[in-house]
């Protein structure tokens, strides 16, 4: 019937809008990016088996808004002295010797308009795993949470943090 057709159309439009909006709100993060990392880096190996502290590599996390990716030279702190070579560590050495940065693919990206500071959250007593999941057991590190606004808001609500828009968006 016509009325239903209208409703269906409206529902369809809303559904399309929701789907588009959902993907739009995902930002530009490419979830399949880990397949294209230049070096098959394993968090499981480094953080899990070797028990390296997160902050050893991501040294910006507790002092800066950005957790940061370690410079090549941090990798080389250990890999310089390691004798065992795999094809992957060989790649690392190639970058190092060519004085090139490693073009890591970014997986944990928030949209430009979100002002997130790692520092504040770590200072407030959160652990890396609270948001990023059990990285120590992952070979690749997809998003452990949606990193959508509602997810942030719920956590802020739970912990009595500010719900003011101007906390994260400016």
């Amino acid at each position: 019937m016509r009325k239903w057709a209208g409703t269906l159309l409206a529902l369809w439009v809303i559904a399309v809008a929701l789907i588009v909006g959902f993907f739009y709100s995902q930002g530009s993060a490419d979830l399949r990016g880990q397949d294209r990392q230049p070096i098959a880096f394993s968090h499981q190996r480094h953080a899990g088996e070797l028990q390296i502290n997160c902050l050893f590599c991501h040294r910006g996390a507790d002092i800066s808004p950005a957790a940061s990716i370690p410079p090549v030279y941090v990798c080389m702190m250990c890999h310089r002295s390691l004798k065992a070579q795999t094809p992957e560590t060989q790649k690392l050495l190639t970058y190092w010797n060519n004085k090139e940065p490693i073009p890591w693919v970014r997986l944990q990206r928030l949209p430009e308009f979100v002002r997130f500071t790692h520092q504040m959250h770590l200072n407030a007593g959160f652990k890396c795993t609270d948001c990023h999941g059990q990285v120590a057991q992952m070979t690749s590190t997809p998003r452990a949470a949606t990193f959508e606004m509602g997810w942030c808001i719920r956590c802020h609500q739970r912990n009595g943090a500010s719900k003011d828009c101007f906390t994260c968006h400016y």
Partner: peptide
């Protein structure tokens, strides 16, 4: 466009 608790007249661009 809204008012923050600390008296700023805010403009949330992404909204």
């Amino acid at each position: 466009s809204y008012h923050t608790p600390d008296g700023l007249n805010a403009q949330v661009y992404n909204r």
